[in-house]
């Protein structure tokens, strides 16, 4: 079955990959409204993968999200910010359909390590109104994607572009006195890297 689905193409698939990624994660929780007027957490990060058995790859990644806003509370204002590390790790099943396009599915654990910051005076690096609360949200993600490569058999590596989308979710976590937040929904990743 696996052989049928993932019939080798003419060339072997490079076993390893690294890429720079951008991504977005939907966050409709009202807590996120403190830092953004949209329900999307955008991020930038890195991803790596290694084939382990046939079409299966182990993939790991790290994204950094940083979103902030000026919060106008009545007639006064302060600065808010949300900064998070998204740690992912899991499996990817690649359908080596073609040497150029390889669809895949992915299921990964997702750990969101977030921090909310509030600053009463953003121009002052050190004032009494600087508050931060942190929390860790475990979760997971499942995506469908496709990788496009340019086969360069004579080269040690070949460029590749990734595009994947799916669903992700993390559990509700409490940010100290600020309250709690969960996140989840559509997740999107796009990456550019090399396969080798």
């Amino acid at each position: 079955m696996w052989t049928i689905l993932f019939a080798p193409a003419a060339l072997a698939l490079p076993p390893m990959e690294v890429a720079i990624e951008v991504g977005s994660l939907h966050n409709g929780d009202s807590a996120y409204d403190v830092v953004s007027d949209e329900d999307i957490v955008t991020s930038v990060g890195l991803r790596g993968g290694i084939a382990v058995a046939g079409p299966l790859h182990v993939v790991v990644g790290w994204h950094r999200a940083s979103q902030g806003a000026s919060v106008f509370a009545g007639e006064t204002a302060f600065q808010s910010a949300y900064q998070a590390n998204e740690w992912t790790g899991g499996l990817k099943g690649v359908w080596h359909l073609h040497d150029v396009i390889q669809p895949y599915v992915s299921a990964q654990a997702l750990v969101l390590q977030g921090a909310f910051k509030f600053d009463g005076d953003a121009s002052d690096d050190d004032n009494i109104d600087q508050l931060v609360e942190r929390a860790v949200h475990p979760g997971g993600m499942a995506t469908l994607g496709a990788c496009a490569t340019v086969p360069l058999p004579d080269w040690p590596a070949q460029p590749a572009l990734w595009l994947e989308g799916g669903i992700a979710g993390v559990s509700r976590a409490t940010y100290g006195n600020f309250g709690d937040m969960a996140a989840g929904g559509f997740i999107f990743r796009a990456g550019a890297g090399v396969q080798f």
Binding site: V35, S36, A69, F72, S80, A122
Partner: peptide
């Protein structure tokens, strides 16, 4: 670029609420 200090927090939006 991703790790900003207190003096350099991200500020992409404006959000509004009551006091």
């Amino acid at each position: 670029a991703a790790c900003r200090g207190w003096g350099n927090l991200p500020d992409q939006d404006n959000v509004y609420t009551g006091p």
